[in-house]
């Protein structure tokens, strides 16, 4: 079976649309957010981090789709039963099962939850030491504004977003630093980095490069498939029991809006930060990382 592709990035970094696009390649299979590497085994996962329903939806939808070919309230219930019957599985076994259901395609997965803890990234790399890793970035200013915007829409997020660690700048720094630390010693080319903004604004330029990197078909036909992330069975709201499994914005509008993407303007590192009451700007830690990623 081919090595999976994991997209590594902090939350609100275009990972949903990028995962959706890459997952539509004829040689790939795009998954919802599985959040698998938050624990060592399914038992710990299901009754630990996945106690939060939001973390279960992706796995439930994937199992329902792969086992029954459709996501309904009933198939999600069956997926739940399957999971509880296999809580003794470790995570690689679960992924192997998903791979077996998918067949010989590259699994494409992204779970921003795993990049905030080094142990989660370590689990991923221990389970899949040869996986392809795409380090996706977004300008820290736009990323921060997006996080704040989402928190403003969902009261539950506001409740858990407390303390210095939840400051979008700190989240951005920490996640990217953990990704860099986890990947710096991997073999040449196993990890590739790309700005989400640049990728999305120039899909015709960068998608063939990603295909070349993954050694998969870069023909116009394959590109055409990738331009329709909305064709994924996971690119919509799920049934009762597993309604999400991805960014709600993406689920509500998964198509590529190329005109909008091309109009997207990059902010600067000196722009005021709306979430800062004291008027402070990005610190040197963020500026160093951001300029290394090509942001101004």
């Amino acid at each position: 079976m081919p090595e999976p592709l994991f997209i590594l990035c902090p939350p609100r970094s275009f990972s949903s649309i990028v995962c959706g696009i890459l997952g539509q390649h004829p040689e790939c299979y795009g998954l919802p957010e599985l959040n698998l590497f938050l624990a060592d085994d399914l038992q710990s996962l299901w009754h630990g981090p996945m106690s939060l329903p939001i973390f279960r939806d992706g796995l439930l939808r994937a199992i329902a789709q792969l086992h029954d070919g459709v996501q309904t309230e009933d198939t999600v219930l069956r997926a739940r039963s399957f999971i509880t019957a296999h809580l003794h599985w470790d995570i690689p076994t679960l992924v192997a099962h998903i791979q077996e259901c998918v067949g010989p395609k590259i699994l494409v997965e992204k779970s921003p939850s795993i990049v905030s803890r080094p142990e989660s990234l370590a689990r991923l790399l221990a389970a899949f030491p040869d996986a392809n890793l795409l380090h996706l970035t977004r300008h820290p200013h736009a990323n921060g504004e997006s996080i704040i915007g989402l928190r403003n829409r969902y009261e539950q997020l506001q409740l858990v977003a407390r303390g210095k660690a939840s400051d979008p700048e700190n989240m951005w720094d920490r996640c990217h630093e953990l990704i860099l630390a986890a990947t710096e010693d991997l073999p040449l080319g196993q990890t590739m980095r790309i700005q989400g903004e640049t990728l999305l604004a120039n899909l015709d330029l960068y998608l063939p490069q990603i295909c070349e990197w993954l050694d998969i078909d870069a023909s116009p036909a394959a590109m055409a498939e990738m331009m329709h992330p909305e064709n994924s069975p996971y690119a919509c709201r799920g049934p009762k029991g597993a309604p999400l499994g991805n960014d709600p914005n993406f689920l509500d509008g998964p198509s590529i809006d190329q005109e909008r993407l091309k109009r997207m303007k990059l902010p600067t590192l000196d722009d005021p930060l709306s979430w800062r009451e004291d008027g402070s700007l990005f610190g040197p830690r963020t500026r160093k990382l951001a300029t290394a990623f090509g942001y101004q």
């Binding site: 040449l188 080319g189 590739m192 790309i194 120039n202 330029l205 490069q209 990603i210 990197w213």
Partner: peptide
């Protein structure tokens, strides 16, 4: 470092990083 670029995928021809 291998990377994507406006000029295409860049992989070091020496295979050294």
């Amino acid at each position: 470092r291998p990377r994507f670029s406006p000029q295409g995928l860049k992989v070091p021809t020496s295979l050294m990083g």
